[in-house]
Each structure stands twice: as C-alpha cells, then as structure tokens.
C-alpha cells in the first residue's frame, strides 16, 4: 500500500506539470486581456501596465519565469485584478472560509445523504422508500440558485431566524451550509440507495442472511461496504468541489470564499489567479482521487493495490 501511495505521489508531478502548462497557454489564447475595460486607455499606458506585470516578455519567457517562481519560491505571482494581493495571499485568505463552509455542507450532505440512502434501500419499494426518494429527487430538481434565495426569503426575511448573508457569526453559516449540503445530500442518497440495492442482491448477502446474521449486521457490516463503492467514487471530485467553494452560494450569501475566484478570475483574465486556483484544485482532486482509490480497496478486500 505504501508503495502504491508513493508511486501515485510521484505521478502527481508530471500531472501537475501538464495541468499548469496547458492552463498557462489556454488562458493566453482567450480573447481579451486583464487590462481591457469599458473605458479604453492609451496604448502607451497599456504598455506600461504590461511591462509592470511582465506581460511584455515573450510568452515562453513568461512561462519559464512562472514555473521558476513556483518551484523555487512557491510564489504564484501577483493578481492583476486585486492589485494589493498576491495569489498566495488570496488563497490563504479565502481557503479557510471555503473549507469551513465546505466542511459543514459536507457533514450535512453525508449525514443526510447516507442515512436517507440506506433507509430507502433497506425499505425498498415501500412508502418509506418513496417518501425518502422523493425528497432526494426534489433536492436534485431544485438548483442552488433557487433554493438559496428561497431559504433566505423564508428563514431570514420572514422569520428572521438566520442572516440573509455575510460570514461573521454562526447565524450566517446556517443557510449557505444547508443550501450546499442539501444538493449533495440528494445525490449521495440516490447513489447510496442504488449501490446498496446492487449489493443486497448479491450471493454473499444471501449467504449471510441464510446463516442467520442479524439484519443490522448484514446492512452495516456487509451491504454498506459494497454499496458505498459508487458513492465513494462520486465523493472524490465532489469533495474537491465542495471544499473549494461554490460560486453560486458565495454570491448569493456574500461569503468571502474561494469559489468566486475560480469563476471571476477567468472572467477578469487574471492569469495568475486562474493558474493559482487551478493548481489548488488540481492538488485537491489528485489527492482525493488517491484517497478514493485507497478507500475502495479497503472497502473491498478482493481488490488489490495495483
């Protein structure tokens, strides 16, 4: 297992290199630059600006400079949009908020999603299943940009229980975590139910049942193990998405997280910030997919680390 993990970590280096290189050149080929704005400036001033950010150098020089700064100093460069911040600072500033929001939402999603999925699978095709599954489907049908404002109208504006937006006190955390959590809970519930059903029909479960194992033991000891496989595969990228923040949720609730930077940096052509967020996301997705692969082996002893 350690050899497996060590090799995967080694593989990460070329993967990251490809991601950085591809992104670096992709953003440069997109029309519009960081200094285009509605009010045009003079060509001379533009040249000064480009010189300031080193954007006047030949592209391959910019590329090698960028790589050098990362490898030697861990320096992701300066944001062109937020003049007063470096990309490192922006990420350090906003990642904790995103992790907090993501952690809360993830907890909600897992607790709600897994329990709903297991209950629905065990009581398959009963009223309980239909009710639970309908709730899950509703969660899937209602997009966050509808659910968020709806929750605000009910719980912040009419009932006054929680805040409409912001990220200062605990009242601010409730609605955004719920909004984000419910969406993922719905997906997890559906996948858990599907995965469990698959397993509950398998021979070894029948064998266990025939041997007189208790129902709870069958479900938690045997069925959940196999049933969780698809959920676990889904969770790798899902967790990376949750933890790096959500553009929609952060905009609706005015949360100072990283999610908005992923989208806005592309819109602003803030090259360094695009790259910084992409690298962060890449590291997360690679690590989480690694964790997923390890967990999958652990869930299913028949698998081996290859």
């Amino acid at each position: 297992m350690f050899r497996f993990i060590a090799r995967r970590l080694l593989e990460t280096i070329p993967v990251l290199f490809i991601i950085v290189t591809a992104t670096f050149f992709m953003v440069r080929f997109v029309p519009g630059g960081p200094f285009d704005s509605e009010k045009a400036t003079t060509p001379e001033i533009r040249a000064n600006l480009e010189a300031y950010y080193g954007l006047n150098l030949p592209l391959h020089r910019q590329y090698t400079n960028y790589l050098k700064a990362i490898v030697l100093h861990g320096d992701l460069g300066r944001s062109t949009k937020y003049a007063s911040r470096t990309v490192n600072e922006i990420i350090a500033d906003k990642l904790p908020t995103s992790l907090e929001l993501g952690g809360l939402s993830l907890a909600i999603a897992l607790v709600l999603g897994l329990s709903a999925g297991v209950i629905a699978a065990v009581r398959r095709n009963t009223k309980v299943d239909y009710i639970v599954s309908s709730f899950a489907m509703t969660g899937i049908c209602v997009p966050t940009f509808v659910l968020g404002p709806l929750l605000v109208l009910i719980f912040a504006i009419h009932l006054g229980w929680f805040s409409a937006s912001g990220w200062y006190v605990w009242q601010d955390r409730v609605l955004p975590s719920l909004t984000l959590g419910i969406v993922y809970a719905a997906g997890i519930a559906r996948l858990t139910r599907g995965g469990m059903l698959e397993v509950l029909n398998q021979d070894y479960i029948r064998t266990a049942r025939a041997k007189g194992a208790s129902e709870a033991r069958i479900i938690f000891r045997h069925a959940l193990r196999g049933g969780l496989l698809p959920v676990v595969s889904y969770l790798g990228p899902a967790i990376a998405g949750i933890l790096t923040g959500s553009f929609v949720i952060e905009t609706i609730f005015q949360i100072p997280g990283l999610g908005r930077e992923f989208v806005n940096s592309a819109f602003n052509r803030d090259y360094t910030l695009v790259l910084g967020t992409v690298i962060l996301y890449a590291v997360l997705i690679i690590s989480l997919n690694l964790v997923v692969d390890v967990v999958q082996v652990w869930l299913n002893p028949k698998l081996k680390f290859e």
């Binding site: 992104t23 992709m26 992923f262």
Partner: peptide, 9 residues
C-alpha cells in the same frame, strides 16, 4: 488532468 483544467476558459 481534465478535472483540473479551467472549464470557463
């Protein structure tokens, strides 16, 4: 790799 590339761009 494909997961990580910026979708908007």
């Amino acid at each position: 790799i494909l997961y990580a590339l910026p979708f908007t761009i």
